[in-house]
């Protein structure tokens, strides 16, 4: 009994240590100087330094990477959710010819690797003058995020009884009044989950973001790879940049953690 209990604690503890170790190491490195990282094996910073972070927050080539990333990620999330809302409503409330096929086809868009689309997007955006803009990356990412958002939102919307729509109409609401004042707040959790996944995908996607930008809209991940090659191994700086990249994701996931469980229950996440 006691042995069981002990095992019940030891196993998850080991698992969590295993999961957190790389993150700890990253944070650990970010407070070290490059010399310490390369010179010795230390479990915690011997010469604690904030220089790495100071560099990032003062050098525009660094912090603009974050600004660019956040700009196109936000744009993308807004566009994806705004477009997916009416689409998901149509899929959940109406029957039309080929609706199920169309719904499935939307998802198959996610099956192609982003690399496939890198070249056509690059060529197209160069031709129409969208290259190296935030909107270019945001639009490219919608190709993957809209199907995902439609899929998630449809699940949440189908969980709302159709009678709610009818009750609103009976009360005198028109369609848009019902949709914006009643329906959208009702599925707020679903919108949160959909927005989270759009955010997450767009935030970690590197290939398209790198291909479609050069200077003005260069994402943070691209900045990191370039810095590494230009001035030797500035490992401390890279670790600090990496740590800062994790923070927005952790921040967003904190707000939607309860809703995501609901999304899992619906089988849509």
């Amino acid at each position: 009994m006691n042995a069981n209990k002990a095992a019940g604690r030891v196993v998850p503890t080991l698992y969590i240590i295993f999961l957190l170790l790389p993150i700890y190491w990253l944070v650990n490195m970010s407070f070290k100087t490059t010399n310490e990282i390369l010179g010795s094996f230390t479990l915690y910073p011997q010469e604690f330094t904030l220089d790495n972070y100071i560099t990032i927050f003062t050098d525009p080539t660094w912090y603009m990477g974050y600004v660019n990333s956040i700009a196109y990620v936000t744009l993308n999330t807004a566009i994806s959710v705004a477009v997916a809302l009416p689409a998901a409503y149509a899929f959940s409330r109406y029957r039309f010819i080929g609706d199920k096929h169309l719904f499935f086809w939307l998802l198959t868009n996610r099956m192609a690797p982003p690399a496939v689309f890198a070249l056509p997007f690059f060529q197209l955006y160069s031709a129409v003058g969208l290259f190296d803009t935030h909107i270019a990356v945001a639009l490219a990412h919608t190709l993957f995020n809209i199907p995902l958002a439609v899929w998630i939102l449809e699940g949440f919307m189908s969980g709302v009884p159709r009678e709610l729509d009818e009750t609103a109409y009976v009360d005198g609401h028109g369609f848009w009044s019902f949709f914006l004042k009643i329906f959208v707040p009702t599925i707020a959790a679903g919108i949160g989950v959909a927005a989270f996944f759009c955010f997450m995908f767009s935030w970690v996607e590197l290939l398209l973001a790198k291909t479609l930008t050069a200077v003005d809209a260069k994402p943070i991940a691209a900045t990191m790879t370039k810095t590494a090659s230009s001035s030797g191994y500035e490992l401390g700086l890279l670790a600090a940049a990496g740590t800062l990249t994790i923070i927005p994701g952790a921040f967003v996931i904190y707000f939607v953690r309860n809703y995501i469980a609901k999304g899992f229950a619906l089988g849509r996440v």
């Binding site: 009884p161 009678e163 709610l164 009818e166 009976v170 009360d171 009643i182 707040p185 009702t186």
Partner: peptide
């Protein structure tokens, strides 16, 4: 000018 009540308890949850 109609109103309706359903078997499921339909209210605006928000």
């Amino acid at each position: 000018n109609v109103s309706m009540v359903y078997q499921q308890f339909i209210n605006y949850p928000n």
